[in-house]
Each structure stands twice: as C-alpha cells, then as structure tokens.
Design a protein around this nucleic acid. Sequence first.
DNA 1: CATGAATGAGAGTTCATTCAT
DNA 2: GATGAATGAACTCTCATTCAT
Lengths: 226, 226, 226, 226
Amino acid sequence: MSRMPLTEKKATTSPISTHTQRDERRRKLADVRQELVLDAARSVFFELGMEKTSIREIARRAGYTPGALYSYFPSKEHIYGALLGESLERLNTQVQLALEAAASPAERLRAGASAFFDFYRVNPHDLDLGFYLFQGMAPRGLTPELDVHLNTRLRDALLPCQAALQAMGLDEARATAEVTALFAHIVGLLVMSHTGRIRMFGQSSQELFSAYLAHLLKRAQGGKSA
Amino acid sequence: MSRMPLTEKKATTSPISTHTQRDERRRKLADVRQELVLDAARSVFFELGMEKTSIREIARRAGYTPGALYSYFPSKEHIYGALLGESLERLNTQVQLALEAAASPAERLRAGASAFFDFYRVNPHDLDLGFYLFQGMAPRGLTPELDVHLNTRLRDALLPCQAALQAMGLDEARATAEVTALFAHIVGLLVMSHTGRIRMFGQSSQELFSAYLAHLLKRAQGGKSA
Amino acid sequence: MSRMPLTEKKATTSPISTHTQRDERRRKLADVRQELVLDAARSVFFELGMEKTSIREIARRAGYTPGALYSYFPSKEHIYGALLGESLERLNTQVQLALEAAASPAERLRAGASAFFDFYRVNPHDLDLGFYLFQGMAPRGLTPELDVHLNTRLRDALLPCQAALQAMGLDEARATAEVTALFAHIVGLLVMSHTGRIRMFGQSSQELFSAYLAHLLKRAQGGKSA
Amino acid sequence: MSRMPLTEKKATTSPISTHTQRDERRRKLADVRQELVLDAARSVFFELGMEKTSIREIARRAGYTPGALYSYFPSKEHIYGALLGESLERLNTQVQLALEAAASPAERLRAGASAFFDFYRVNPHDLDLGFYLFQGMAPRGLTPELDVHLNTRLRDALLPCQAALQAMGLDEARATAEVTALFAHIVGLLVMSHTGRIRMFGQSSQELFSAYLAHLLKRAQGGKSA
DNA sequence: CATGAATGAGAGTTCATTCAT
DNA sequence: GATGAATGAACTCTCATTCAT
C-alpha cells in the first residue's frame, strides 16, 4: 500500500531540485495522513466489526470530517481494500519471520504453515477483512488491478510451503494440490473456530491443525501426495 | 417449517368435521402464503445477497406490502432463520438419501460426506445462508432456541459420518476429531471454491475433496485417526 | 357507560316475549364482552401508559383479534372515551360516599373536595385519562354528545362542593367562582405532583391542598368569597 | 441556545483576523440555520400539536430533507428540548421586564406572578411545550443535564415571587409553600382555560387569577402563610 | 360475532456520497 | 486539502383500520 521507496533526496538547491523536494515533502505528508485514516479505519473495524463501521466513525477517529476521507480514498470499498492490503503485508512478514529459523524443508513447511495459521487464529479480524471482498462469499467491487495484487500477496504467503513441499520431493502439481488443500483446511478451521462451530464439536482448532500438519508431513516425506 | 401432515378426513359431513375442515383449509392457506413469502425471500437473498436483501424487496416479490410480512415473521432475522432452517432440512434429506444405497461403514462414510459436500457445492447460496448467522463471522441475534435448533440440524447432517467412523473402529474421541476435521475441510474447500480462490491455485475442489476423503478412509481403515 | 337499567323481564312465554328475552340475553352478553374489552384497555392503559397503548395490545389482553374490537367500539378514541366515562363514574361514587358521613355544609365541602382530590392523587392514571381528550391540551375528537356527557359527569362530582358553599351563605356567583378556583387548584396540584414538579419545590401536594382548603373554609365562613 | 455575543472586530485585516472573521461568519450562518429549523419545528408543533409533529414535516417546512436535521439536532427529543429552552428564556425575559417597573415587594409579587400567568395565557402553545417533557404526565427522556437546566430555568421564573414574599416578612418555608401553591394555581387555571373547562363553569381565568393574587397578597401582608 | 389477512401511511434514523466554499 | 452542509434513498418496523369469509 505504501509508495515505492524513493531515491534519497540529494542536497541540491537548484530550482528544480527545490521543486522536487517540495513535491516529495507533500507526498510524504499525504502518505502520513493516509496512514492516519487507515489507522482510524482499522481501529473502527476491529472494534465495531464490519457492519457498524461507517465513514462517519472512521472520519471521527481520524480527526476529519467525512468528506475529507474522499481526498484519500475514492470510496468506502477502497478503504477496505487498503486495509486488506496492509493485513496481507503483515501476514507475509510473519511468515517470512517464521521461516528464518527453519533449516530443513520439513521445518520450513511446518514453520510457514503454522505462521499462516497462527496469524489468522490470533487476529481473527484480519480474517473478517479477508472475507470482506466477497460479501456473502461473492466477489466484490474493487479495481481489477487491486484485486490481482491482493490475491498475489495471499499466494505469496503460501509460496514458502509450496517450495518446501517441492524440496521434499513432490512434483509441482502435487505440491500445488497439497498447498491448496492445506490452505482450505486452515480456512475451514479458522472459520469454524471464529464462528464457534468448532466448540460445538468440542474440538480445538489448534490440535486439529497439528494433526493435519502431521499427516501432510508424513505424506510429503513418504513422497506421495494423494 | 411446515406443519405436521394430518391424516385426511373426508368422508364425514358432521358439523364438527366441517369445522375441522375449514380450520385445516385455513391452516394450509396460511402455510402456502408463508411459503410464498419464504420463496420470495430466498429469491431475493440468492439474487442480491444478504446485504441488499430488504424487507421491502421481499414483500415486493411476494406481492405484499412490507407490513404484511410481519404477520408471518416477527422480524427480518426470523425470515433468515426460517430460510436457513429449510436449507438444513434439504441438506439432511440429501444426506439420508445418499445413505440408503450404502451398505458398509466405509461406504456410508463416503456417501454421507460426499452428499454433504455436494449439497453445498451445487447450491452455493445455501452456503451463504449458512454463513448468515455469523455476519462478519460473528454470531448473530436469533432466539437461542432457534439457534440451538439450527445448530442441531447441522450436526445431524454429520452424524452418519461419525457413526460410520466409529463402526470402522475409531473410538468416539477420534471419530469426533475426524468428523470435525472433515467438516472444516469441506467448509474450507467450499469457501475457496465459492470465492474463486481455488481457481487461483488451478485446482478443483472436487478432486481435492476426493483426495481428502481417500486419506480419511485409509486412516480409518488403518484404525488410527491422528 | 353501561346501558340504562332495563325493566324487569316478565314471565310471559308469548312469541314476542321470547323474542324479547333472546334480545335481552344478547344485549347482556354484548355488554359483558364490551366490559371485557374495557377491562383489557384499562389494564393496558394503566400499565403501559397512553403512548404505548395500542389496539393490538388491548385485543391481545381481551383475547380478541384487533378487528374484533371494532364490533364494540368504532375507534380507538371511543375506547378512551368509554374508559374516561367509567373513570368519572368511579369519581362520582367516591365523592358521594365521602358525603354520607358529612353533616354540616362545612364538613360537606371538606369531604367532597378531599374525596375529589384524593381520587386523582391515588389514581394518577385516571388523571392521564382525563387529560387524554385534549391532547397537548387541545380538544379531541369524540362525538359532541359524549363530550357533553363526560363534562357533565365531571361537573357532577363538584356540585356537592358548590351546594355546600351556597349553604354556607355564598351567593351562586361566588360559589361558582370558588368551586372553579378550587377545581383549578386541585388540577394544578395534581399535575405538578404527577410530573414531579412539586418535588422540585420540596413540597407535598397534600399539605398544600389542606392549606388551600383551610383558606377556602375561612373565606366561606366569613361569608366573602373574593 | 444562541452563542455568546462576540464583540465585533472589523478594523483589522491581518490573516488571523480574516480567519476569525470567516469562522465567525460561519458560526453565525450555522446559528441562523439552526434557528430556521427551530422556527419550523415551532410552527409545526404549534399548528399540529405534539403527536402529529414529525421530523419529516419539520424538515419540509424548513426546506430541508429529513436527514439534514440531524446535523443540527441528534434526535427529535432534542428539538423539543431546544424549543422548550427557548420558550423558558422568553418567559424569564418577560418576568424580568415586568419587575423593572415594580418598586415595593408587594408590587414585585404582583408583577412577577402576573407576568408569569400572562405569558402562558397569551401563548398557550408554550404551555403545551412545557407539558411535553411529561407525556401523559410522565417524565420523558432528555439528557439529565438538559432536564436539570430546563427545570432550573422554570424555577428562575418564579424566584422573584419567592424573594418578594420573603421581603414581605414570610420565612423561607412559608414563602416556598406559597410560591408553589401559586404556581399550581396558575397551572390549574391555565390548563382549565386552555381545555375549555373554565368556560364550562362560566368563569374567566383572569378574574380567578386576580382573586387568588389578592388573597395571597393579603396573607403575605398579614404575615401568615397558612 | 370474530377472524386472519392485508393495507397504506408513516415513524425516526442512518448512510455513503457530493460539492461549494 | 478540508470543511460543513446537505442530499436522497434506504432502512426496519408499527399502527389503526378495513373487510371478505
């Protein structure tokens, strides 16, 4: 969501340079203010939930009037989009962090998958956010490019698992199938956990996740995916 | 939702019978009209999604004024509740039907699970409906009794699978864990399929489901659940 | 509100008489049922207050459907009218009762006024009822005859006081003025008491009433009203 | 309701001053528009009465859409509160004005009480407004602070009478009792007058008020309150 | 007499969004 | 860039009343 890192401003004082510097300053200010709006949006969203999140309330918390938000985002949907983008960045960071300490492919699989699962288990609101784009499970209206970007970042968070599976000897097709199934399983467990359905069965999502992961590892180590 | 089927009494012409017949006719008419409202609600819901479903639109499609709906349902929430109730009945019917042709426990497991999966795969709107109770994934306000009833009917649809697993030798705890994991997996696959995420991975939810089922059967036949 | 006492039914068996008897029975039944509706209305009104009193709720408590009430009363207003009529009958009864034990005119004045004051002090809902006809203090739509009847019954309740004042030597004009002022004072005290305004002054409506009555008696005994 | 009067600053042309001027202009415009809404509300209220006063109608007369009113007042109740607030200010102004020409305590008592009485006699709609807080004579839901404020302003209008009574020699308790009784009498007379009940007795509220005031003055000069 | 069904008008309130300033 | 004002459409729900049966 944040702008591309800018090349460091040189210490020139020519008119043009000055002009550039001012533009830069402006852009940075704009960024900061946009971030402020996003912070407010996140806080509203996480506290009150999707349904009760309103432009008015976001503006209030950001210290703006509702109209002002439209300088930063063209619609409510785009604010959600930006929020989701941020969320996916955090997810990827988390996953990358977990991978650092993992050496073997098996460890990387476990670490990556666990980080993914835990991210949403610990931050259920980020799951809500993820589900927002498809209201009632149906796709929503964002710009196609943004949609592609978001989907890509989601995939990115799962790529390390796929790589690990392939490193363990699965061919690409099998690895893709397993990683997709893993994702589905995680989503299912999270949804059920979040909606209290898992309690209904007297189960713990964490234990079920562990069990699934153990099966997966066994399959991968055995070299067979199906 | 529908009233108990009454044994037909036609051959009598005594005043009492006439009275009963009229009552019965009325009740039937009432049922028909309630069903009409429900049909309208379902069509709105399935076409426009939850968010855009309004009492006004339901009434319009049912050929009523908004106020009239309140003779049939005390609130919008209750309409959803009734819709979901219906949906769960259809689900259970489907599952029971599939079981009839299944002899061995393994066949019953496969048949029950497949019927469950297919029901929602073929009718994705019923999945939306199922998610209704937890808007933004958080529980919603129905009467507790109705909520319990709906949850029970959901469990009912999964009970045959649990029974089959136990018949195959798993103890109750293991069977419960496996059935819960199965449910989660199905939900995950369906959600991903419904939201197009599964296409993103170039996978087919049906194949992934088959694979999961195969693993599960192997585990169950091997007698180990975790 | 109740129908005029009917002349006792004679023990005749002629067709005509039979006819009359049946009519009478019907009328009585109708009366009973109307009373039932009125009871329900009173209970709703006294429990929920004017604003929350609805035809639906009255019907519910009377064991009827809303439409049925229109067999007994042509409108909601008329139900209130009937209720107010009843209330005024009770007021008059109370006043008459108090007068029985009073011998001298002074005693009669004190007894009548106190009974009037206490009736409304003890039953503040009857005061609400009295105020209903003039919503926001402006006249309401009942039939003129009913309005006249109700006003007359209200005056009736004050007539004993007027008579007592005249018996104490005041001429009619003075007596009327004093009784009107007495009525106004009572109404003022009751309204203030009922709305909590009298608490605001740290006063008790009963003591203030006693004081006013004492002044009035002194004036009347002194023979001068202004 | 209106903002504190600001001392005009015009002669300056510095940026800060300009800024202040613009703010001031805006605030004044806002005040004017709020007053416009209040005017509309008053006109609806006075013409149609409380029950038939709706946000829609107020908006219509003010030349706004219903939603716009919510920029000025957070709820219908608050509009009534503001209306009542205004009314009480007018009452106090009237009373203060009347006192200016009064020298002796007795004159002050007469002037204050008469001003109070006349204000509501001449503007019966303000009486309706005063009764609003207790619909069906029962207290209503405003913010407690506003409620306290309004009650205080009502008392303020009666304080001069109380002070006069004490200046005439009554101790505080007696003065309070007399002023409360006076208030009650006025309210009673006004209600009766407004509802046409006083006509029923062939009396004039003004004469009755004069008579009451005369009695009160005599009592106060005689130094006895009960 | 009573019902059950339905009407139609209306209530207060909320909301994303627009736009002149 | 930001404001304050306003829009206009939408929302769920309530009500007194009517009327065929």
